[in-house]
Amino acid sequence: MQELAKIYGETLLLDKKFSYCPGCGHGIVTRLVAEAIEAFGIRKRTVSVVGIGCGGFSHHYMEIDAIEAMHGRAPAVAVGYKIAKPENIVYTYQGDGDCSAIGLAELLHTANRGIPVTCFMINNNLFGMTGGQMSPATLEGQVTSTTPKGRDVHQHGYPLRVPEMMADMRGAKYVAREAVYDAKSIRKAASSVRKALDCQMKGLGFSFVEFIVPCPTGLRLSVSDSYKWNKEKMVEYFKPQVFKNEMEQNDEN
């Protein structure tokens, strides 16, 4: 552990074991966020606003101040925080239920408002903590504990693509979707985390990254199969890409 601390520095609290299930994608994203904070040297002025759900635990593993918001409201909390203390770096860490079901209005208005805060949406396409219910991101036909015969789009609507919506918002300056199904995609995801935070540090505007991650427990799959399923099924519908990067042109202003 001491040895690993050499890599991760002060942000990640290695003496606290992740409480995520084995193979959970949250662990990867939590680590990527901590790494970026450490790399930028912004730990002392960074505040995490976490949502409700498994993502709510993410701050426990980092030596940064944190606010556990009400379900879905993290972006609004971040806006209020940033307005009162603009010199600090504020990011939200929310699941797809928190971010795109109950909290979609706050997320979209925060994106549109353009106040420099960062939102990370960890999309495991179901409600993990409450036991694998359908979320807005659940795929068509996917079986969950509340869609025993698979998601019927005529009844429940279609899997919701969030960054596509936000890319159209002028207040958003960096919008991306990433995945974590293999080392290559994780490296890309790490790059997007850094860019999203950098976008805020430069005061350019809102930044957003969605991460497609597996929830082996909720999917009732082995860890290995859940990652394969992510790579094959999820990514087909939720294509990882950088939707918007207006960081360069803003640098000139």
Binding site: I67, A76, V77, V79, G80, Y81, I83, A84, N88
Partner: peptide
């Protein structure tokens, strides 16, 4: 200071909470 018009009272209250977290009275 500033007046911030939010998108709903849900957002209002939560922005107020965020502001309070910094120790600032909103």
């Amino acid at each position: 200071g500033r007046m911030v018009q939010m998108e709903s009272e849900l957002a209002v209250a939560n922005a107020l909470a965020g502001c309070a977290c910094t120790g600032t009275l909103g």
